[in-house]
Simulated scan of single mutants.
Amino acid sequence: MVVGSDGRYFSRTATEIVVQMAAANGIGRLIIGQNGILSTPAVSCIIRKIKAAGGIILTASHCPGGPGGEFGVKFNVANGVEIVDPVDIYLNLLRNIFDFNAIKSLLTGPSQLKIRVDAMHGVMGPYVRKVLCDELGAPANSAINCVPLEDFGGQHPDPNLTYATTLLEAMKGGEYGFGAAFDADGVSERVSSLLTLLSRDGRNIRNQRLEILCVGHWAQSS
């Protein structure tokens, strides 16, 4: 069974409880994200890859965190506890789906597309840093709020025009050609694997697939 969280308040305690309950009920092997962190899409990826029985994600999605915030549990349908890197397995999946060389050229080439991605202090911070900055060569300032915090920095981790104001203001400045924000567990508030996207002028084009936007950009550039 796979266990992960978006890092919100009480996640560490809840993870320990899950481990104890699993052991008490005869579950022989747990796969747990390093520091308890795993995004919801990454949990699904690992379940399929290792053919696990299922997965538990400790998250309340885009709802507030902290001692007075919200907490929830999602369930997605060898021996011992294994700690895994929360990014590597999912990164390998992305490499098999997307042309990383083409995207890197888009982000670093002569006609560089400047991007701004806000992880909103949720689980996606390590993924954004590793994928966009380390793997694809985007400048460090392309990724903001990438340290997962138990209270999400006191902000509401819902990537809409009300709460993603830092990203919105950056996009209105005209420096960036593409902007995106994630909610706490790495999915938008509606559908898995979708992002809140903002055009250059800050206009909301919510819940459009990232790959469609990229294809459109490449088509215009070719």
Rank of each mutant, 00 (worst) to 15 (best):
G186H: 11
T196N: 06
N207Q: 08
G174P: 01
S192H: 13
G179R: 11
M171P: 12
D185L: 05
G177L: 08
T165H: 01
Q208G: 08
D185R: 02
A184C: 11
E211S: 15
A164H: 02
K172Y: 03
I205H: 09
E169N: 15
L194W: 00
R203W: 07
T196R: 08
A180R: 06
L195S: 08
R203H: 07
L210M: 09
S188V: 07
N207E: 14
A180N: 03
D185C: 05
Q208C: 10
A180E: 00
F182A: 11
Q208R: 05
M171V: 15
T165K: 10
F178H: 09
D201Q: 05
Y176P: 04
G186L: 12
V191L: 09
F182K: 01
F178T: 03
R209N: 07
G186V: 11
R203D: 15
R209Q: 11
L197A: 08
T196C: 15
G177Y: 01
R200P: 09
F178C: 06
G177R: 12
S199L: 15
E169D: 12
A164T: 00
E169H: 14
T166Y: 00
R190F: 05
Q208H: 03
F178Q: 01
L168H: 02
K172E: 02
V191I: 07
L195G: 11
M171H: 10
R200W: 02
F182L: 03
R203I: 11
N204L: 13
E175S: 10
L210W: 10
A184H: 06
I205L: 15
D201A: 13
G174L: 09
R206H: 03
A164Y: 00
S188M: 04
A164P: 00
L198F: 10
R190V: 15
E169T: 13
S192Q: 12
